[in-house]
Design a protein around this nucleic acid. Structure first.
Lengths: 197, 197
DNA sequence: TACAGTACCGACCGATCGGTAAAGTAGCAC
DNA sequence: GTGCTACTTTACCGATCGGTCGGTACTGTA
């Protein structure tokens, strides 16, 4: 398993969580290892016992949740489903993941640029695979004739991506709407637009 | 006029541009003053002759373009126009601003967290005013009966915001579609959704 | 010629950066 | 007891951080 995977000691897991929270608030480069010491109560050496570098923390955070989303998306694509229903379900999964892991998703979407050159390609590939998942879900609707002809075009995918990603900015777990309700409104909007009928 | 306003010497203006480009690529905290020296060819002292602090650069970048967008939006709101047409025009203006000032808009949307506590309120107010402009434009359509009843709800505004803001990630001046074409596709999507008819 | 203002320079400041090293401690196996 | 592993602590490293400083060169004005 990779950095963000299952084989995580509790201490290591807590470290990643604290790091994500700090990175989300102050940004990756705006967060010092001293901040992490304060947040975890651990000394410098202890932190480096559990984790090999600050970059490792960032890499783990930026890859784990994206991987999960891709996996779920692929599973959904294999199921027999109505296209609009599949779209709705994936939207719910994504919004849920954002609300449930707000700090991690914030860092994942916002601090990509801080991933060191050497491993950025890997992260970018993940982002591409995630985007492709949305594209496939859209395409399935076009194939079935329930979505308009051009609705799997690159720009529609970008629109859908933007619609969902921006949620990390404003969506809060204690907000008035739950993740499923938010996702449903997103999907209703995507499906029929804002025009009065 | 404020930091980003009109009263700018050419040197100061170039400094802000270079800073925006660096911040956009490496992030605010990931960019050092040494980077800025290299990019501008100026010495440390010269930079601080034109600008009072690194924070000032960030503040200028995060406020100037937002202010312009708000002004244009307010102008649009005062014009007699069909609601959908007003929406289309503002979308075009926003997308155009993003393409034309990609580094600045990137920093403006992404590095908000790096604005020092003392001035963050001002920047946040600006973001709120910008969001309200979109809300007003939407509300006008609801009032006129051309947009659905609930289409000025907070979540729809967030959706529209996300749709547009995410463009700084993927939109490029040399891309296949010009800003107006992109905006038009956005608006068509917003108006009617992706469902086949 | 004297002075003011603008633009610029590079050396230097204390603080903080991410990361390392060595020593120590607790628990478990034998 | 000894030895091993897991974990922690503290002191410390060189590098870089944003920012300041005293000083130089050029320009316009009187």
């Amino acid at each position: 398993m990779t950095a963000g995977g299952t084989r995580m000691s509790p201490a290591r897991e807590a470290l990643f969580r604290s790091a994500a929270e700090l990175f989300a608030v102050k940004g990756f480069h705006g967060t010092g290892m001293a901040d992490l010491e304060r947040a975890t109560g651990l000394g410098r050496g202890s932190i480096y016992h559990h984790v090999s570098s600050k970059d490792d923390l960032l890499f783990g955070i930026t890859t784990e949740y994206l991987r999960r989303l891709i996996d779920v998306g692929h599973g959904l694509l294999e199921e027999e489903r109505e296209a609009a229903d599949r779209l709705r379900e994936f939207s719910r999964v994504v919004v849920r993941e954002i609300v449930d892991h707000l700090p991690e998703m914030t860092v994942c979407f916002r601090d990509l640029h801080a991933v060191p050159e050497a491993r950025r390609g890997e992260v970018l590939d993940l982002h591409r695979a995630y985007e492709q998942t949305w594209a496939d879900i859209l395409q399935r609707g076009v194939d079935d004739g329930v979505f308009g002809e051009s609705m799997s075009s690159s720009i529609v995918v970008k629109a859908v991506l933007g619609l969902h990603h921006y949620a990390y900015i404003w969506l809060r777990p204690d907000g008035p709407l739950g993740p499923d309700e938010v996702a449903d409104q997103f999907v209703d909007l995507m499906l029929d637009g804002i025009r009065a009928r």
